[in-house]
Write a protein that binds this DNA or RNA. Structure first.
Lengths: 229, 229
DNA sequence: CGTCGCTTTGATCTAAATCAAGTTGAGTGG
DNA sequence: CCACTCAACTTGATTTAGATCAAAGCGACG
């Protein structure tokens, strides 16, 4: 569709809420001479790539939201991460994607060929460092999430989730969750009913308020921090 | 990261022949001009580094075994990985260790200064690539482990654990586990009792045999593979 | 303004945790 | 070389957090 050769990260910085680290790095990387960045859009629930597919591209969310997940043979699903505007996803050191990715809502991404990034990394130490740093950031998230999945209670999981989303997508103290309760459950290792009950309980305690099931205002972040163990 | 001769939980003395991936890379890296590799030993249960401590060194297990873990404030523990002879651990892209590390049994490691590795990565593209690849390997393990922690049953978790350990440390069809049932539980997000019951059940089904609680022979890997979901 | 997917809430069930004894066996000292 | 000790492990009884099953609300959209 739109093919553009990005010559500076200024273009990247025009898009939406800016998580610092990753975006700067992807900006640095897509600003590299000879790298071609393309935009592409996916509709709600559309697959971006499947598990074990060749990792041809690296992606950055421009608008919308993406879930990365693994499935067991009987359909049980573990979502490893949500990707929000500014986030880079699908970066692999090897040749295949270890998780599948789907658009949660209508989503536009920027993408660059993995091969061209690796090529750039071969001559530019800064690019090589960026790739490592981005993968290390994903690892840090995964390590934190293992602790959550293995050892936190349902209420602690939900509290941690709310604080993460608040940090990543709150605007004017309010967050608009793009994902449904089932997605949240599959991220936290819970059922959708348990997620719903925990949120209702937090509302009853005055810790948060709803305006529609997916519009949440946190009214007491300190209480949530105490709960998140 | 295969085969070595950890022959019993008490005597784990010999260094393995070179396992492919990580060790080659660490070897390449420690063979780099100007890099100093030192050996150091830790006794059973001794801390190697703590969570959030400055990441001054990168380690490779020569003999013994190491657990990497995170703690919640009330002492609940999630072990993120076990490190066996040949494995590299403690590699960080940032300046601090995200998990703590302890020797499970008496352990000898080789270590190099993180700073010197980063320096080498700045001039040698191969070293830079190695660092990225090693971190990506850790990420892959963490992604698989999130699926296990969030979505597998107790029996599936134990089956997956046994197959992982079989792959990594079986010698002549037998494995000598260096870690206790509590460590296994904290790795799998279970209690030690649940781990013990699952192992007993597998023994009763003839899937495995014991010669001492930590010496295990797998008698039916296919059945374990079917169980591991 | 009716429909359908999403969410909430209630009732019940169950896998795994917790609580509680015993048993085993590796290491220690007599 | 044996017996003692203590931590590790196993096994049993009971409890419980969260899953499952079931039925309403609700709200966005055609």
């Amino acid at each position: 569709m739109l093919t553009q050769s990005l010559t500076s990260s200024a273009v990247a910085s025009r898009i939406s809420p800016v998580p610092q680290g990753a975006l700067d790095q992807f900006g640095a990387v897509t600003g590299h001479a000879g790298l071609i960045a393309t935009e592409f859009s996916y509709r709600k629930d559309e697959e971006i790539y499947g598990e074990d597919e060749p990792a041809e591209y690296v992606y950055q969310v421009i608008s919308g939201a993406v879930r990365s997940y693994k499935l067991l043979s009987d359909g049980r699903r573990q979502i490893g991460a949500f990707h929000l505007p500014g986030d880079v996803f699908g970066l692999e050191s090897g040749t295949i994607h270890r998780l599948a990715a789907e658009a949660i809502i209508d989503t536009t991404v920027r993408l660059v060929k993995r091969r061209s990034l690796e090529l750039a990394a071969g001559t530019d130490v800064k690019v090589a460092r960026s790739l490592w740093t981005m993968t290390a950031g994903d690892l840090r998230h995964a390590e934190d999430h293992m602790l959550l999945l293995g050892r936190k209670t349902a209420m602690e999981k939900v509290a941690t989730f709310l604080l993460e989303m608040d940090r990543r997508l709150a605007v004017a103290g309010m967050m608009a969750l793009p994902m449904c309760r089932r997605d949240i459950g599959d991220y936290l290792g819970l059922t959708l009913e348990t997620v719903s009950r925990a949120l209702s309980q937090l509302q009853a305690q005055g810790v948060l308020g709803f305006s529609g099931a997916r519009q949440i205002v946190l009214r007491n972040r300190q209480r949530l921090h105490n709960m998140d163990a």
